[in-house]
Amino acid sequence: MPAQLPPLKALKVFEAAARARSLTLAAAELHITHSAVSQQIRLLESHFGRPLFVRSARGVEPTEAALLFYAEVKASLDRIALAAERFTRTGEQRIVRVNTTPSIAMRWLIPRLSSFQIENPRMEIRVTTSASDGIDDLREPFDVIIRRAPMSRAGHECIRFLDDVSAPLASPRYLAQHPLAAPEDCLHASLLHLSSRRDAWARWLAAAGVVPPPPPGEHFYQHFFLSLQAATADLGIAIGSLALVDEDLATGRLCQLFPDVVLRDQGFHMLLRADREAASALSVFSGWLAREGVRASSGLRAWIA
């Protein structure tokens, strides 16, 4: 016997309310009354036998369990919407081949792609990753290459689309166990280093007016997402781009240390292939990337003193 589904109408109302953190905004978005939203939320809470929201000064906040449920509901609704668009629309599918690094793919690009696919169901974005920041060894003719620095290649155009601001990051538990009152206290902490950016900690300490420590020891990670996982697991302090950890900061999984001291790098760039056949699809995808970059860059201001 199949598992009993929650009330599907209530799920859509819950997703809108959890995303907006407001019953009023959810009602406006769904074109229903505030009382209708409240009724659907109560129906869902009755189904589960537990509350989904707590009231706050700004509106409502999902409970910790409801946040996890929201992520699954949103992903499922996105997939349904995408399937519906593909079912109702006809036409040849257009493919855009993207190459980037694992950290950018996992921490920034892929979490945002569902919204692009819903808006553009006839386009397929194929993402592959390269361990190196370099692009000279790339043989496949990728349509878009994304890196944390400007790039140059014949027959391509390079566009900066996202700010790259880095800062130290640690878990709340690590900071509770290792209080850091001033930047120089980091010299006595466990610093997590990136193989591709070996000078990041030295640069940040110098910017903070601290004499850099001796060459780092064994805490090296090949990818940023690995150092981030180590920081989340209370193993030390990572340093990395705030654009790749916006959700971790918003949910409190990680904390930014000393927000008045940050490293500003050249920015995230996209290298676009000049190809008449792919021009239309590339224009759509690069335009979306640019808009997402502006939105994300605006959000960074909340974490920078």
Score class of each variant (00 low, 15 high):
residue 1 M to L: 12
residue 1 M to W: 01
residue 3 A to C: 06
residue 4 Q to D: 13
residue 8 L to A: 14
residue 9 K to N: 13
residue 13 V to M: 08
residue 15 E to N: 10
residue 19 R to V: 09
residue 27 A to S: 12
residue 31 H to S: 14
residue 32 I to C: 15
residue 35 S to D: 15
residue 41 I to F: 04
residue 43 L to N: 12
residue 50 R to C: 09
residue 54 V to C: 14
residue 57 A to H: 12
residue 66 A to R: 08
residue 67 L to T: 14
residue 70 Y to H: 15
residue 71 A to W: 01
residue 73 V to S: 07
residue 75 A to G: 05
residue 75 A to I: 01
residue 80 I to C: 08
residue 83 A to E: 13
residue 91 G to C: 10
residue 94 R to V: 00
residue 107 R to Y: 00
residue 109 L to G: 09
residue 116 F to G: 10
residue 118 I to N: 11
residue 119 E to F: 00
residue 119 E to P: 03
residue 121 P to C: 09
residue 123 M to R: 11
residue 130 S to D: 12
residue 133 D to P: 10
residue 134 G to Q: 13
residue 139 R to P: 00
residue 141 P to E: 06
residue 142 F to R: 08
residue 143 D to L: 07
residue 149 A to I: 00
residue 151 M to P: 03
residue 156 H to Q: 07
residue 157 E to Q: 13
residue 159 I to S: 09
residue 161 F to D: 07
residue 164 D to A: 15
residue 171 S to P: 03
residue 172 P to V: 06
residue 173 R to P: 01
residue 176 A to H: 07
residue 176 A to T: 13
residue 177 Q to H: 09
residue 178 H to P: 04
residue 180 L to I: 13
residue 180 L to E: 04
residue 181 A to I: 00
residue 182 A to D: 10
residue 184 E to A: 14
residue 187 L to N: 08
residue 187 L to H: 05
residue 191 L to M: 13
residue 192 L to T: 03
residue 194 L to M: 10
residue 200 A to H: 05
residue 202 A to I: 02
residue 213 P to K: 08
residue 214 P to H: 03
residue 215 P to G: 05
residue 216 P to G: 07
residue 220 F to N: 04
residue 220 F to Y: 14
residue 230 A to F: 03
residue 231 A to Y: 02
residue 231 A to W: 02
residue 233 A to Y: 00
residue 233 A to K: 08
residue 234 D to T: 06
residue 234 D to R: 07
residue 238 A to M: 06
residue 239 I to H: 12
residue 245 V to F: 03
residue 246 D to A: 14
residue 249 L to I: 07
residue 249 L to M: 08
residue 251 T to W: 00
residue 255 C to D: 06
residue 257 L to D: 04
residue 259 P to T: 12
residue 263 L to P: 04
residue 264 R to G: 09
residue 264 R to P: 01
residue 269 H to P: 02
residue 270 M to K: 02
residue 271 L to W: 01
residue 272 L to I: 15
residue 272 L to H: 01
residue 273 R to N: 02
residue 275 D to C: 08
residue 283 S to I: 00
residue 285 F to G: 08
residue 286 S to R: 05
residue 288 W to P: 05
residue 289 L to Q: 05
residue 296 A to E: 03
residue 299 G to H: 06
residue 302 A to V: 12
residue 305 A to L: 15
